[in-house]
Nucleic acid binder design. Structure first.
Lengths: 154, 154
DNA sequence: TAACAGCAGACAACCGGGTTGTCTACTCTT
DNA sequence: AAGAGTAGACAACCCGGTTGTCTGCTGTTA
């Protein structure tokens, strides 16, 4: 148990986790999903869907950048942008059937991976890990109570 | 204690940590350092320094890409590339005095931040966090025993 | 009920951090 | 002495994002 700096250990562990997650998703037939996509799908699953602008805030990028990400997902038939839903300015982003399947697959893979971590180090330590992360995130909420953006800063 | 997916909690916590780290480094006068730079400085601190190619492996990018990162650090006077050190092919990358100061500052800030985490959730949970990360990383070593690259996949 | 500030989004140009591709110089075998 | 392998430089390119500008819709104020 050497003394790797926390940031370094977190970075590499997250990289392993994300890589493995997308390897498995690809094996399930979802080969064109990037990490950011999962979060967009998740946002689109909310009742009423989401909008490009809100995706931008979520991911920590401009609304124009987010619109491009959404366009990719639309091209892949994961989401659709129905015209108007009462407010003529917005074009709400909602899940297609394929999008729902992808989201379910992603959740299943996440559960698999977490179960493997539990098997590796025990439920007790994984619970502690969650406690730490949640505490840090809670402290890191901004004035509106929102969590930080999902994209790395690199 | 909701049930945020692990990948999501890790991503956002890491983002907070990295952002805060660089905010504090900037306050100490190191405003031109990106996250990747710290890892390069760290590698350059090894006896004999490092090389662009090895930096590439470490960060998970091509040697040409790594050479650009090293060139940035050289322009910022954090490292110098002395000509030849016995092997005429390599131009070893070593720390300047400024590079050593930056590295020491980074270490100090990391210690500060970890201490704040301990204060927030207790030493016991932070230890558990380390145990989990180390176990996952150990399992994730490749055939040569090397850890995964430091860059996110995004 | 008109004016106007504000927001969602589209479109186009650009940028920067990386990749790809190619080349030279050097070293290590044999 | 020759050939395979490695470190690095240089140039062209790419792609995921940003910046800047514009249109159309909404909601508030008067």
């Amino acid at each position: 148990m050497e003394d790797l700096p926390l940031a370094r250990a977190l970075t590499q562990a997250l990289r392993l986790l994300v890589d493995e997650m997308h390897t498995r998703l690809a094996a399930l037939g979802f080969e064109d999903l990037r990490p950011a996509h999962g979060y967009v799908l998740n946002a689109a699953a909310a009742p009423g869907g989401t909008t490009s602008s809100r995706v931008g805030e979520l991911l920590g990028m401009t609304k124009q950048g987010a619109a491009k990400v959404v366009a990719e997902l639309e091209a892949g038939r994961y989401v659709s942008r129905k015209g108007n839903g009462g407010d003529g300015r917005t074009r709400p982003v909602t899940l297609t059937a394929k999008g729902r399947r992808a989201l379910a697959a992603a959740a299943a893979v996440q559960n698999e991976l977490e179960a493997e971590w539990v098997e590796l180090v025990g439920a007790r330590d994984v619970k502690a890990l969650r406690r730490v992360l949640h505490a840090v995130l809670d402290r890191g909420r901004d004035e509106n109570g929102d969590l930080p953006p999902l994209r790395p800063t690199w």
